[in-house]
Each structure stands twice: as structure tokens, then as C-alpha cells.
Amino acid sequence: MRIGDLPHVLEVQAQAYGEVMLESEATLASRLTLSPSTCWVAVDAQAPEHEACVAGYLFTHPWHLAAPPPLDTVLHTLPEAPDCWYVHDMALAPRTRGAGVADRLYAAALTAAQALGLSASALVAVQRSQGFWARFGYAAVLDVSPQIAAKLAGYGNGAVFMTRTL
């Protein structure tokens, strides 16, 4: 992903989430700026000329397993000693769902994360997406700390903290 992709990423985000769960361009740019090797876009070469060619995106970055960042928060630095690969957000343009785009995005980012030497991954599943993330090996953490529970509240009803071993 490149900074120039962000306007198209924001279009995909709006298509995927509607009015809820939208994050600012500054929030997403901060993740891309801090960890460009772990943020990806899928390009749809078959997209009609009037539509963006970004078919989906995936923002990830090194982080601390026990401290997911709050939703829609600009990050200024990454931790000095990260212990996990944090999967911040994946969204697909509706026209590409079911075409394997999510699998390819995740595989590319996973390879980059493994090159960082991290042994765990974490994410916050929103909008009943636990089953989707379970396909990639994530499991819900049922007994979260009060700090994680407080952050989950900011992600909306039904947000679930999930982890996996890399």
C-alpha cells in the first residue's frame, strides 16, 4: 500500500462499513507510515473505469498483545519491543467478496509479519466477524483483562478480542 491509495481505501471502507466503524484518513495513514511493509491493498484490474481499482485493503502493524489500540486513534510510534502482529482492519469492496481477495491479502501480510519474527497475532473482530477470522486461525479470548474490555467497548457492541499463534 502507498499513501496515494488512501482515498481509494476510504471508499472501500465506506462501502464495507456504511456509516458505522469509519476511521479517519489520519488514523489509517499513521498505520501505513509506521509499518508500510505490513499494509496491503488488492487491486482489481477488471474494475469499471468509474470505480476505484482498490478491491480491498489490510492494515496491520507490530504491537503489544495485551493492549489493542483504541478504534480511530492516530498512532505516533510503534512499541520498542512488540510481541504481536496486530491486524487492525481488513475490508473488501462488495464486488470482490467471495473471490479469494481476503485470503490473498492475509497471506501476503502474514508472510511480512512472520519476517518480523513475531510469534503471536491479535485483532478485534467487529460486526459479527468472528467466524471470518476463525478461518485464519484466530480464537476468541473469553476472559479478557479490564483494560482490554474497556477498549473493546469503543469498538461497538459484540466486539471480540481474538488471538492466534503465528
Rank of each mutant, 00 (worst) to 15 (best):
V101D: 05
S37L: 10
P62G: 08
E51L: 15
D72C: 13
L71S: 14
L75K: 12
C84K: 01
V54A: 12
D83V: 03
S30Q: 08
L78T: 08
P48E: 15
F59W: 09
W63T: 03
P82N: 00
A29V: 01
C53N: 14
A29Q: 07
E80W: 02
L28A: 02
G18W: 06
A91L: 07
M90R: 04
D72A: 14
L58M: 13
H8K: 07
G56L: 02
H64I: 15
D72M: 14
P62S: 04
G98F: 02
P36N: 04
E80C: 08
A91S: 15
R104M: 06
P70V: 01
P62W: 01
Q46P: 06
E19D: 12
A81S: 10
L92W: 04
V101T: 14
Y17I: 04
G100V: 02
V87F: 03
T73P: 06
P62K: 01
D83H: 09
G56D: 05
A45F: 07
W85T: 03
V54D: 13
G18T: 11
P7M: 10
A45T: 13
V20I: 11
V43Q: 09
E23H: 01
S37N: 12
S35W: 01
E19H: 08
L10Y: 00
V20K: 11
Q13C: 05
Q13I: 11
V87I: 15
A29P: 00
L10F: 01
F59H: 14
P82K: 00
E11C: 07
D83Q: 07
E11R: 11
R97K: 10
P94G: 04
A93G: 09
A45Y: 08
V74C: 14
L65A: 14
C53M: 13
S35K: 06
H8C: 08
Q13T: 13
R31F: 11
G56A: 10
L22Q: 15
V43S: 08
A99N: 05
A99F: 02
T77L: 12
L105C: 03
C84D: 06
P79W: 04
H76A: 15
P7A: 12
Q46C: 12
P68F: 00
L28I: 09
A91M: 10
A47G: 12
H88Y: 00
L65S: 15
E19A: 14
A81E: 10
E51N: 13
A45P: 08
R104I: 06
M21W: 11
S30W: 07
W40P: 00
E19M: 07
V74Q: 15
H64S: 14
L105I: 04
T60H: 05
P69V: 11
L75E: 14
C84Q: 01
Y86F: 15
P36H: 04
